[in-house]
């Protein structure tokens, strides 16, 4: 029916698309969405591989992946909200208060 490799190609495509979104978009929310896409690429890999070996472990792994994503996103979203509240922007480029300034010399 569906060869494993085809699922994996799609998964890899999703993963790289997510990465591309993270690299190209400048809004924090878009970056988070890119992260989601990457996570889902990984999830598809896990499930496809699990089905390939007819093993429930792939699904279990995906469930944990979902849990981790949920936890990560809850915190990430509240942080985005705080940033928005504080700086009135969600552009990632504006968030470089912690950047190292070499003109100041060694700490």
């Amino acid at each position: 029916m569906i060869p494993l490799s085809h699922s994996l190609i799609i998964a890899a495509l999703l993963f790289t698309l997510g990465l591309l979104i993270i690299m190209l978009r400048r809004e924090l929310l878009f970056i988070l969405m890119g992260l989601e896409v990457m996570f889902n690429g990984a999830a598809l890999t896990a499930i496809a591989a699990g089905q390939y070996w007819t093993n429930a472990d792939g699904q279990v792994l995906t469930i944990f992946l979902t849990v981790v994503t949920a936890a990560e996103l809850a915190i990430a979203l509240i942080l985005v909200w705080l940033v928005f509240e504080r700086l009135n922007t969600t552009r990632a480029d504006n968030l470089k208060l912690l950047k190292d300034n070499i003109d100041r010399g060694p700490p």
Partner: peptide
């Protein structure tokens, strides 16, 4: 679902689409 993981399909809709993305 098509790959044979019905539970995960349902969970994907419920948790990802139904909860996480709504939060988003």
């Amino acid at each position: 679902f098509l790959l044979g993981a019905p539970l995960l399909a349902a969970l994907q809709v419920m948790i990802y689409a139904g909860a996480i993305m709504v939060l988003f």
